[in-house]
Design a protein around this nucleic acid. Structure first.
Lengths: 149, 149
DNA sequence: TAAGATTGACCCATCAATCTTC
DNA sequence: GAAGATTGATGGGTCAATCTTA
């Protein structure tokens, strides 16, 4: 196993960084038209898919790829905006759940078509089915290994 | 052409986001041992590869995927650390170049083995040659399209 | 008037320390 | 003491406005 990446591998790494920067920038810009960011959208999405529309703060933090303190502050802002609500947990007074509100659900419903179209336009559209499969398996492998580090 | 991504395409998008978050987090952590961040490393790398070790501020900003103001502040910090130096341009008094210093070059030389090994360990190692090729072409296509938006 | 770069105001994320409950 | 979440301090990024020169 070589110690360092060869030029073709470095090209893949560079393309990965550039694609991420470019695509997330466009999607952020598009979501701003709905007064959302990618992070806010992601919180609403994860909550909407969770049973009861609720997730523990710590679990939600991991789902949306944020630190715990980062999620605390994000929830502060989203709670002020009326999109989520914090609730105590019955069997553990240390913990809290974030719950999506009615307003949160309708905000997500209104934003989803725009955002999904954005993902389609700026990402998926440029991938063949075969390429999408390759990306998924390869990038999952990478993410899992990196998380273990 | 469908309006929205299908589930397999959404899986690719999610894997893309998660891999980026996980890998950059590890690489940032590793570079901290050399008092560097990915952004600092990238600035040093781009400058070291440019003719004369110099790039105009605006060009450098684009190379390292930052806004112009973001690069101004990054250069402030790196100049304080002695890694780069701002210099006037002969034929355009509005412009400045960032130039890598001796210290900057030696810092990059010391950090490069660690960082390249990190890219190898946390990214390239998990890709077959074929997968790396697919990623490169597909992600370049995506990045170019998004930049045009 | 436009281009290149910087600045001010502001937003948002992280780490380490803290508070509460287990 | 450990776990869950928050807070204070801090670092680092963006946009819009500004300054200077072309």
């Amino acid at each position: 196993m070589p110690e360092v990446p060869n030029p073709r591998q470095l090209a893949a790494w560079r393309a990965f960084l550039e694609a991420h920067a470019a695509v997330t920038a466009v999607l952020e810009r598009e979501l701003q038209e709905r007064d959302l960011s990618l992070a806010w959208y992601d919180v609403l999405l994860q909550l909407s898919e969770a049973p009861g529309g609720r997730l523990r703060m710590g679990d939600l933090a991991r789902s949306v790829l944020l630190s715990k303190s980062g999620l605390t502050r994000l929830c502060d802002r989203m709670e002020s905006a009326g999109l989520v609500r914090r609730e105590p947990i019955d069997d553990d007074a240390r913990g809290l759940v974030a719950a999506i509100t009615k307003t949160g659900r309708s905000t997500l419903r209104r934003a989803a078509p725009l955002h999904l179209k954005g993902v389609q336009t700026h990402f998926s559209r440029h991938l063949s089915e075969q390429e999408a499969r390759t990306l998924t398996t390869a990038l999952r492998r990478i993410a899992e290994a990196a998380r273990g580090s």
